[in-house]
Design a protein around this nucleic acid. Structure first.
Lengths: 232, 232
DNA sequence: TTGCTCGGTTAGTGAGCGTTAACCTCGCCA
DNA sequence: TGGCGAGGTTAACGCTCACTAACCGAGCAA
């Protein structure tokens, strides 16, 4: 466990501030001058450290994806060595993800918000890492809940990520006492969700809820009279 | 229960396509020419219908917020008339939200992604509607789980929104059989999460998870040094 | 017919912004 | 001392893009 104490390099300062700004106002909403100002240099000085604005985003997203995945793998490895039960391994995975979500909120936000601003190759890389990370979870979840079919397990894992990554939204002041309480609550929520997913898999009592609530700007179906580009 | 069958007006077509495009590539990532092309007119023709690009986003976000809130209120009212138990009322709320999430995915995405591109007054309005909607949920959740403290209930509701709104991410092909199955699964996940939040509130077995996992570009605290992929 | 509104069109403008060019100044090594 | 690379600076360029100006044709009422 090497928690670094030495000062961050210029590159790291820049990436940190860029992550914060991108998360706050979106990739396109932030100018290079602003990023520069945030670290005390101005505008084009950034180009001594990065090939361009895109390169910063790419490095951020690839970085967080790699860390999530490798963190997950390490969890699994340690759990294997320690001979932990599947349930405990899942707890470790959840705890690790919560640490990411709470400590690197800005990156988590970016991670599922600006992915499509990347060059094709980088996007592919990030997507692949994401997929591998998801499959890690799916494997453990299905050990804990063997009765849960694979597709449902995968969808549930995505949903739980949505749950855990919601921390940016509850960042409002005075929301929860402290970090540990927030982590514990998120942990319970995640475990409970997964257990329930497995629990009632027989199909069921729900699903017959309220009528489709006729939408105003229905979009996804696409059909409608709505003009050109019929196919794609 | 007015499921509209008549053709959408021009304004509605535009809003629908704008929502889709904004959700796909972000507000700044879409040009007015593109929105126009999507409805068969080109570029500045849009200004016959809207004051500007910002106005479209504002109308979309205020609209979805209003619909979410009023849909929630209607649920509560109907549940009250029918004399439903709190649990059933909560199920109705969840079902309604899932309908929104599944049918108006693009708007749900926008809703928590582009909020800060709004003029102050519009943003305030949207935030207020969001808050009221959350409080609706908090009230019902605390009727179902009286032992859950208010702050934890509120945080849990936010987290459950994150869970339910994760549908855009699992949109990938072949993820789940059909809409009803997805809705049922999301429903179980949400109920399970809330039940678990209430269940172990005493603080507990969790929380002692893996060490803080020193972050790379630590941002939020502002202080701290962070290392580039230090360990591994 | 005349004339007015509604909803389009194309051309142009002006601002913002990413990026590059040219220059400057340290600290360091031979 | 001389050179040189690392890391800044300011000025300027060029492109994108929201928005405006000016014009136009269909429908329609008087």
């Amino acid at each position: 466990m090497s928690t670094r104490t030495d000062a961050p390099t210029r590159r790291e300062q820049i990436l940190g501030q860029a992550a914060r700004l991108f998360a706050e106002r979106g990739f396109h909403g932030v100018g290079v001058d602003e990023i520069g100002a945030a670290v005390g240099i101005s505008g084009p000085g950034l180009y001594r450290h990065f090939a361009g604005k895109d390169a910063m985003l790419a490095e951020l997203l690839v970085g967080i994806s790699e860390r999530l995945y490798s963190g997950g793998r390490r969890c699994m490895a340690e759990a294997g060595e320690a001979g932990l039960a599947p349930g405990a391994t899942l707890d470790a995975l959840i705890g690790r993800h919560i640490d990411f979500a709470l400590d690197d909120r800005a990156l988590i936000t970016l991670h599922d918000r600006e992915l499509d601003r990347l060059r094709d190759s980088d996007r592919k890389l990030v997507r692949q890492l994401q997929r591998q990370y998801v499959e890690l979870w799916v494997g453990v979840v299905r050990q804990v809940h063997p009765e849960l079919p694979e597709k449902e397990a995968r969808a549930s894992v995505h949903a739980v990520f949505g749950l855990l990554n919601s921390t940016p939204h509850l960042s409002r002041p005075s929301s929860l006492p402290d970090r540990d309480a927030a982590a514990a609550l998120l942990h319970r929520l995640a475990r409970g969700a997964l257990a329930a997913a497995a629990g009632g898999a027989g199909g069921g009592a729900y699903g017959a809820e309220g009528a489709p609530a006729g939408g105003v700007y229905r979009v996804d179906g696409g059909t409608a009279g709505a003009g050109p580009r019929a196919e794609d």
